[in-house]
Write a protein that binds this DNA or RNA. Structure first.
Length: 586
RNA sequence: GCGCCCGUAGCUCAGUAGGAUAGAGCACUAGAUUCCUAAUCUAGGGGUCACAGGUUCGAAUCCUGUCGGGCGCGCCA
């Protein structure tokens, strides 16, 4: 419907240009927006005000000239000037009811565009290190990323969902050592746990698994292990050097036979857990991208060589630096450390280059807000590689703070004092969690009210939307019990009978859906879909309360069933994009 | 100190490629059920869009500054 009006406007403008009333530079794509009140019709355009200066005419006069040249359309009732020079478009009833026909015809794909191979993007999100279970902070990134990926797909993009698995860094070594130490503890050795180690019960769980498989095979005396080790922070030393030394001890004692046992078991066990967790949350990935494989493939050397070729590297203090400060970053960054190992940042650069070489139009990154410092350096890297930095898009997701009984729930990551995503899901349910995470703009801090998310009352927007869907399903069940059937053909022939105010409002809401999808995709804003679904549910509930659907008149009955079936389809489509179920009864 | 995000109704938030009278939910008040699920609906009050300037036909939206809140500034990941 909107496109149709846009087309009429363009025709009118071209007409005026041809007649010489407007100059060629007035050939612009007109802005058309939904009106706030039905008094102003369905759509409004500010084109006359925008062009007034260039045309050398007062906006109102220009508006009238445009209206006079609008091609005839059976959908358009009339257009008229309003306010300072708006053109308001009033639609015929037939234009509004066509949407029902469209929805029943297209079904699941109503409002969605077919996949266009010209627009292939990768969306990378979560990418939490496999050093522990996902917590509620990751949850927001997961919910946002998954919803955004689905919406982009609905908007016609080919989307690759990727999780970058950091399975090769020093943190992995720390994890392996943490497990080994807990394992020794289970064997009966007494060692003090390093400050920098990973705490949390899951470490014990992994240690238990290892011990079950290998028994006391990798047990050594605690005193031997700690002999002449640099002191931990609490003893006046440094936590980093202490843990690094511990890693070396682990390698030495366990050797090539034992160390990988702890390392692999730890990573695999946690990764498997994360995958299960996300899957239960309705978050699916197309590609679990291993950093280890990236490194083994030589991609890091390849990327560093590219930076070298382009003259962006230099040596200082034994390390190799990337001259990021010349490319918009605040300082230069190390890519190869003094000890010869590449940095995490070097892997990031290689991964980005890999994405470009796989031919994606765009690489979308979803980061937690605490990673915003990465934006400048990644962009610098893109430029340094000779790639177009506009193909790199970084979206920041702000923090979520949990509230219970009106109180902030305190959390700190390292100490193991955090609420896991799994616990959240078990407490409030996956549907409510998914909705609450995306109901606010991703760039807004989120207050997550646990009590509200759990409540099965009218305060909870998730149930409000789902209830609308369930109610429609219920109407159709009642129809069956009455030994009647829905005849969509009769309904379609009777579309002109949809004239009640709440029917018109519902039709209007349904016709907005394609525009919402387009807008959500363009602005990377799934929360708009959440708000839309709430508004759509409101229109449906109002309709439900004001009119009877299962009436004797078969024309009215069938056309109303067509309408609410259309509403059910759009509700289900929208909820699916947000990863929320559409229950048939509640 | 420097950088990024934010400041809109009592609370939580929409609205930012500039548009008409700034919206919604919750909370509060008063109503609706011989009828398809009351997890629903109807009506009502409630605002210096943090503050001060600027840009223009028009600013919550763009620019500058001030105040307030969050986060980040490692050869960590």
């Amino acid at each position: 419907m909107k496109e149709h009006i846009e087309e009429l406007l363009i025709q009118a403008l071209l007409h005026l240009i041809r007649e010489g009333i407007l100059s060629a530079e007035c050939d612009i794509v007109p802005q058309l927006e939904r009106t706030r009140t039905p008094d102003h019709g369905e759509f409004a355009s500010n084109i006359a005000m925008v062009l007034a200066k260039r045309a050398g005419k007062p906006p109102q006069e220009l508006a009238q000239a445009i209206i006079d040249k609008l091609p005839h359309s059976r959908q358009l009732k009339h257009a008229k000037i309003a306010g300072p020079g708006f053109i308001n478009f009033y639609m015929n009833q037939v234009a509004l009811t066509t949407v029902v026909k469209d929805i029943l015809y297209y079904g699941d794909s109503y409002g969605h565009l077919p996949a266009d191979p010209e627009h292939e993007v990768t969306v990378e999100f979560v990418s939490a290190n496999p050093t522990g279970p996902l917590h509620v902070g990751h949850g927001r990134g997961a919910a946002y990323g998954a919803s955004l990926a689905s919406i982009l797909q609905a908007a016609g993009y080919v989307v690759q969902r990727e999780y970058y698995v950091n399975d090769n860094g020093r943190q992995m070594d720390i994890l392996a050592v943490s497990v080994w130490l807990r394992y020794l503890e289970l064997c009966g050795e007494h060692l003090r746990f390093p400050e920098n180690g990973y705490r949390g019960d899951y470490i014990y769980n992994i240690a238990r698994v290892v011990r079950k498989e290998v028994g006391d095979k990798w047990r050594f005396k605690g005193a031997d292990i700690l002999d002449h080790l640099p002191p931990d922070e609490a003893d006046g030393g440094n936590r980093e050097t202490h843990i690094d030394a511990l890693i070396e001890r682990a390698r030495k004692f366990l050797g090539n036979a034992g160390y990988p046992v702890f390392f692999e078991t730890s990573v695999n066990s946690i990764l498997t857990d994360i995958q299960k967790d996300l899957s239960d949350f309705g978050v699916k990935f197309d590609h679990w991208f291993s950093e280890k494989e990236l490194e083994d493939s030589g991609a890091i050397e390849h990327a560093i060589a590219r930076l070298e070729e382009n003259g962006h590297l230099y040596k200082k203090d034994g390390a190799t630096w990337f001259r990021a400060s010349k490319l918009g970053d605040e300082k230069d960054r190390v890519v190869i450390r003094e000890n010869g190992r590449t940095t995490y940042f070097a892997s990031d650069i290689a991964y980005f280059l890999n994405k470009m070489e796989r031919g994606f139009e765009k690489a979308v990154y979803i980061f937690g807000a605490d990673h915003h410092g990465y934006m400048a350096r990644l962009r610098a890297a893109a430029t340094g590689l000779g790639e177009d930095p506009d193909r790199l898009e970084i979206l920041l997701v702000q923090f979520a703070v949990l509230f219970r009984d009106g109180q902030k729930v305190a959390m700190s990551t390292r100490s193991g004092q955090f609420i896991t995503l799994r616990e959240l899901r078990e407490e409030v349910g996956s549907d409510a969690a998914r909705f609450f995470y995306v109901m606010r703009s991703h760039e807004q801090h989120l207050d997550f009210d646990l009590d509200l998310a759990k409540s099965r009352t009218n305060e909870n927007p998730v149930y409000y939307i789902q209830y609308a869907h369930a109610r429609i399903c219920s109407v159709f069940r009642n129809l069956e019990q009455m030994d009647e059937t829905h005849n969509p053909a009769i309904g379609e022939a009777a579309l002109n009978l949809l004239t009640e105010p709440n029917e018109i409002k519902l039709l209007r809401a349904l016709s907005r859906y394609p525009e919402i999808i387009e807008s959500c995709a363009r602005l990377r804003a799934p929360h708009q879909l959440a708000h839309y679904l709430q508004a759509l549910a409101t229109e449906f509930h109002a309709y439900y309360n004001s009119e009877q659907f299962l009436v004797d008149d078969e024309n009215i009955r069938n056309v109303r069933l067509n309408l609410i079936l259309a509403a059910r389809i759009v509700l289900a489509n929208g909820l699916a994009l947000l990863g929320i179920s559409a229950p048939e009864s509640m």
